[in-house]
Design a protein around this nucleic acid. Sequence first.
DNA 1: TAGAATATCTACTCATGAGTATGATCGAGG
DNA 2: CCTCGATCATACTCATGAGTAGATATTCTA
Lengths: 235, 235
Amino acid sequence: MNSRRASPSSAGKSSAPSPSPWRARRRDREVKREAVIRAAARAFNRRGYHNTSLDDIAAALEVTKPTVYYYVTNKEHLLFQCFLAGIEPIHAAFREVKDLEAPARERLNAVLRHYGEAVASEFGWCMVRAEDQDLSPAMSRHIKALKSEIDQGIRRLIREGIQDGSIEPCDPKMSAFALAGALNWIAHWYREDQSLTPAEIAAAFVTIFEGGLRPRSASQVATRAPLKRRVRIAR
Amino acid sequence: MNSRRASPSSAGKSSAPSPSPWRARRRDREVKREAVIRAAARAFNRRGYHNTSLDDIAAALEVTKPTVYYYVTNKEHLLFQCFLAGIEPIHAAFREVKDLEAPARERLNAVLRHYGEAVASEFGWCMVRAEDQDLSPAMSRHIKALKSEIDQGIRRLIREGIQDGSIEPCDPKMSAFALAGALNWIAHWYREDQSLTPAEIAAAFVTIFEGGLRPRSASQVATRAPLKRRVRIAR
DNA sequence: TAGAATATCTACTCATGAGTATGATCGAGG
DNA sequence: CCTCGATCATACTCATGAGTAGATATTCTA
């Protein structure tokens, strides 16, 4: 983490003489800034936003609070940066899928897989839990807007799927809520040390969403209580 | 909980006829206590646990903070009470369904409907968001245990459904996470003034869970991009 | 109506944590 | 070697909010 200055020390850098130190400095600074954001994400993830002090974050980086403030303007912005880092891959997924020739259901599935992986990522917690309360009105609006984009994107894909016949007709709004909710919730239970990788989890979820609980095979075996479980009417 | 002194209070009670004032007092107290808990739930629901001070709750009840402390021991217990109030109907749903003769899928659906309604209730937020962080270790364990019971109950119903053929074979753990997640998330977006009632939302979700996104009808129309949307391969 | 529970208020304490003022340090360029 | 700017630490301020001490008010009982 602590990238001490890599200091190429210039020294006859090709012919180009001088803007290198400036550039190196700026790059260093950006690296450190990202380290701060990652440390914050990890801390928020573990203890929650309100139970994480900037002193905690600083301690995790082995620096002091003013140093943290040297890289971010305040705690709220810090959360916001974590949020952005978490949500970016989802936007990327939409872009990636945008111009694909494929039934909308498959495009939706691709987005959902990326979505699930993003939620299980280091920044998943921040992405999922930011906004609600504990944010200034302005910031809250901003985050809500970004989240809404994603919601609308999912709804659109569902509508397109219904149109092209690849998705069973349904209420796009409710379906989008159900899908996003299931995936968002991953942030509540997933921890690194899990047996499944984020990709595997996302894939499992997509399978569940696609198929539903009701058996596809016509079989439809028992419709009565099968083996054990006798009724004890008289309670 | 608070076992108030049953107060034999010595004094030849025995034949004594009228503990009525005592009883009335106790009832009053219980009513007020519940009012405190409801007020807290509403406040937590709106502004979140950490952004709600006990002064806020007191103000909502038009009393002062010490009065609130007269009815609950501290903020954490207050959240815990809200949690219990929220989770009770879910436990009730399990009990209700326990001795039913019906395919497990239908029993599961009944539970999920109650679950959804509970999450959309006044206490839904507290039930869903409690535990995580911001709770003492002991309380956290307690709440986790109660939540785990519900999770295990859902998994059990899924397993039973797979056995009796009413549910498509799947990973019970992942499926339970998906279902609970989708329903839990309702607490994040549902507000009273919605067009749909909690019952309607719960029903809609169960329909989605059951059927899945893939069309049931064999039709399977377009498998290619349908109308607009031409590819711009060259990026 | 005295006197007890019971119920509520006024006016604090005290810890925590966000954010800052100010000074030290260190590398680079002159 | 000295200065300058970038970086980081020490040591604060200040607001907030949980929880409490010690009244006071309100009933009900005797």
